[in-house]
Design a protein around this nucleic acid. Structure first.
Lengths: 272, 272
DNA sequence: CAGTGTCTTGCGCGAAACGCGCACACCGTG
DNA sequence: CACGGTGTGCGCGTTTCGCGCAAGACACTG
């Protein structure tokens, strides 16, 4: 013992040390008792006590000989990773998040693509986010620096989003710098296609409350008309899609005066 | 050994057993070596070998005395299972959920204990649940038979709950058969203790909107006054706590005319 | 300034869980 | 029938864990 190494010797209070343990564990994914004891120059007993409390607080999970982060990585959930068109959605989400400046107030729709935007926004702080999506709430629930307003309403189990009178009533009390909308389908002439009129009505209302309107739809959704309820969008609006989109699919939007952005999986905008 | 119990004896190949272990671990969140050994009627050594391989394959994470799922299953989050006073909260939640009849409309507060109630209510269908808690939303998001209303509002990152004008405005449009409230502390004379006046104001409002008011607080919270904001409760109300509560801690509540229910970890009410 | 209470740490001990090697049982193949 | 591969149970030494105890640090109080 009595290590005097020039390494990462720390002299900290117990609170600070525990916070640091959580940070190390979440970035590394896994941390051993021995390593932690050496790093902080305390006994393994002390580390075990720390881990016991952190486990009790639900911040870490105990393993044999150490501890691991509860979530694989703050980055992305497995559910997202395995979903369809993951790379495309991720790229779209990155570009969308890049449009947002710290200090702004944005409105996020429900849906997996918009949920990914919320993930990317975790580091754009300070920020105010209002949302109708449960996925968005989960993505930002642990980020203290982001002010989150939930609009409430009736939960649609399929889309994990809120709709209904409560949602609309809440919307009427707010306006936004930008709104990011998802869609089941999108066309140049009719706008956004959804399963029901309650959803389209809500999306129209959302679009009217923001200065900039973005519709996030990966290539497969362009020109698709899976249902017969439509939300018309106030001009101007911006369509964000991925580079799998055919020029022929983009042409109608350009002709209609819609701003079209095509991004690669890294979130960089490409020239059509 | 050679148990011949009528329980969950399984006779399986090693592959099938490992698949089953993964299934159990992901639904339960956590599985112990001893339990698994008993379930499959093999020795702990065999289970340990299974876990070693599954861990190597990246399908599970090893813990001391068992294994856990890598991704949190929608069912129960590990965070709940490992949290403080888990057994007590689970028992309280079971009893609380038993009070609810199919077809009723209930209001659920934020907090881990009330979140556990939501989990128990997954099978009490049909049902209408309104809530101010993100945990509750997550617990019921995938249950189609439960109608979920989110009250919305400003997200408190610490408690994972919603507060503020939006929440209160939504509350004024609904009433409920029962409301289940959590608490940071609870006393017989002053009621519920919380960190801020916005929370106590909301809890008072919630209590006034329901016919039956339940306060769920495990033994450690009784008589505790960690903060200085208080929510007074309209008589009559019911205090639900666990069997670790001292009779001396319960006496003030009984004297004040509060209905007191003491439950064991299985959710059975005990006689004080 | 001494007394008291709280919080934290290090240490020692017994209990629990671990990995490893060995022996045996089962099964398909040459 | 001999053979190797696989899976299982068991025993043993090792590692890790959790708990109780005592000592030090610090704040508060009379």
């Amino acid at each position: 013992m009595h290590i005097d190494d020039a390494g990462t010797a720390r002299q900290l209070g117990s609170r600070a040390r525990r916070e640091e343990i959580v940070r190390l564990a979440t970035t590394t994914g896994l941390a051993s008792v021995e390593e932690l004891a050496a790093t902080f120059e305390v006994t393994a007993s002390t580390i075990r006590r720390d881990l016991a409390q952190l486990t009790g607080d639900g911040r870490l999970a105990r393993t044999y000989g150490g501890a691991m982060a509860l979530v694989a990585h703050p980055e992305t959930s497995l559910r997202q990773r395995t979903g369809e068109a993951y790379a495309a959605k991720r790229g779209i989400a990155r570009w969308a998040a890049d449009q947002v400046q710290p200090g702004e107030t944005v409105l996020l729709d429900a849906g997996s693509t918009v949920g990914a935007v919320a993930h990317e926004l975790r580091t754009t702080v300070p920020l105010t986010v209002a949302t109708t999506g449960l996925t968005v709430l989960e993505a930002l629930a642990d980020v203290d620096e982001v002010h989150v307003e939930c609009l409430g309403g009736t939960l649609r189990h399929l889309s994990q989003g809120f709709v209904g009178p409560l949602t609309e009533a809440a919307l009427e009390r707010m306006t936004f710098d930008r709104v990011f909308l998802g869609a089941d389908g999108v066309t140049a002439d009719s706008g956004i296609c959804e399963a029901g009129l309650d959803q389209t009505r809500l999306k129209e209302l959302m679009a009217r409350r923001a200065q900039h309107v973005y519709v996030l739809a990966h290539a497969a959704k362009l020109g698709r008309r899976p249902f017969h309820a439509w939300a018309r969008l106030p001009e101007p609006w911006t369509l964000v899609t991925d580079d799998a989109a055919e020029p022929a699919a983009l042409a109608p939007f350009l002709a209609a005066g819609v701003a079209v952005v095509v991004v690669d999986p890294q979130g960089r905008a490409e020239q059509p």
